[in-house]
């Protein structure tokens, strides 16, 4: 097997899987789990964009 993802898609997939586990394990009720999972995913994706822009600025 040789799967080659782009940096962005690898980071987003990472965020999806980690968010599912965080949501289920860190909250008790179903509603809270969904909300927390979505919050974590948003933070992961947001972090990817922020890190991307920081690297772009540093590179200049």
């Amino acid at each position: 097997m040789n799967l080659q993802l782009s940096h962005f898609s690898a980071a987003v997939l990472f965020g999806v899987f980690a968010s599912v586990v965080f949501g289920i394990t860190q909250r008790s009720t179903s509603r809270e789990q969904i909300r927390y999972g979505l919050y974590c995913f948003a933070m992961f994706v947001g972090g990817v964009f922020v890190a991307g822009w920081v690297m772009w600025i540093l590179r200049r």
Binding site: M1, L3, Q4, L13, F14, F17
Partner: peptide, 13 residues
């Protein structure tokens, strides 16, 4: 989630 993550990690060498 955990199995997919592990398998994808292996698939990415």
């Amino acid at each position: 989630s955990i199995v997919c993550m592990f398998v994808l990690g292996y698939a990415m060498q």
